[in-house]
């Protein structure tokens, strides 16, 4: 397995080059690039600039593990407004295009967003309808489109069997699940999600979760690896059981009040322990 971390974790005032140096020094093999979340990778970034971005990543001794985006929170594929939906699809298409330019074969998509205004059944249908053609485009480009399980964050596809049925309905070999083991909170167990989805897992996001906090109040439920309630030995065992040998990508909140770079070293070492199974 290889280790990666998001470029959106790089301290804001560090810049890309210094951030890449830190990622490499901390022992990561790759970096997850977040389209629209960082100044160096926007929807307006040209193909030439994306190629330059790849050159910088590779010059730092890293590779791009995958292309993610947070843009679908504001521009969901499940929007009622046809104009917003078209824009959301364009974001996915750009992810697919840039994945090719960056030399990776996976993208992360937040598939839908259930709100008081846009109900679950509408979101489900629209996402299935949107992902079928996008899955075809991804397949043609040799890219896997991983829908992230955001569970209570997007109030959609809360259980692993629900997610399984969703992927069945999309029915595209290029569309799978980008599994986040921290997003399941107290609605289930990450190791069971891994077991159920096995070969459909495109990438795995790692973070720990403080299940007892639930989603109430202003305290985050997320924390660094091994500080929360995830059963890490069981998660590691489930990865072995299903034969997952792909990228593990750290996705936690940047919460170090001092020495923010220390979080990279601590996370990398924790991931080493997880991969080696010394838990």
């Amino acid at each position: 397995m290889k280790k990666s971390i998001g470029d959106n974790m790089i301290p804001k005032d560090w810049g890309l080059e210094r951030g890449l140096e830190l990622v490499k020094r901390a022992g990561f093999d790759g970096i997850e690039l977040w389209l629209g979340d960082v100044p160096w990778f926007q929807m307006t970034t040209t193909d030439a600039q994306v190629r330059e971005l790849r050159r910088k990543v590779e010059s730092a001794g890293l590779v791009v593990s995958n292309v993610s985006t947070g843009l679908h929170w504001a521009t969901p594929l499940s929007a009622r407004d046809p104009g917003v939906r078209a824009q959301a699809a364009r974001i996915v298409e750009r992810q697919i295009e840039t994945a090719g330019l960056l030399g990776t074969d996976a993208i992360l998509v937040v598939a839908g967003l259930v709100t008081e205004e846009v109900p679950y059944n509408e979101v489900y249908q629209r996402c299935v309808d949107a992902l079928k053609p996008l899955g075809e485009k991804a397949a043609r480009a040799g890219v896997k489109l991983g829908c992230e399980n955001c569970n209570s964050e997007h109030r959609f596809l809360i259980s692993p069997r629900e997610f399984w049925q969703f992927l069945n309905d999309v029915n595209s070999p290029a569309v799978g699940i980008h599994l986040d083991v921290g997003n399941i909170h107290d609605t289930g167990f990450a190791e069971q999600w891994i077991e159920i989805h096995g070969p459909r897992i495109t990438r795995i996001h790692l973070k720990d979760v403080l299940k007892h906090r639930g989603r109430s109040g202003d305290q985050s439920v997320y924390t660094n690896l091994f500080l929360g309630d995830n059963n890490w030995p069981a998660i590691r065992a489930a990865m072995t059981k299903v034969g997952y040998d792909g990228w593990l990508i750290a996705e936690m909140e940047a919460r170090y009040r001092y020495a923010p770079d220390q979080q990279f070293y601590d996370t990398s070492q924790a991931m080493d322990r997880l991969i080696s199974g010394r838990l």
Binding site: P119, N121, E122, Q125
Partner: peptide
């Protein structure tokens, strides 16, 4: 129509 489509 959207409500019809989701089987309301």
């Amino acid at each position: 129509g959207p409500a019809l489509l989701i089987g309301d």
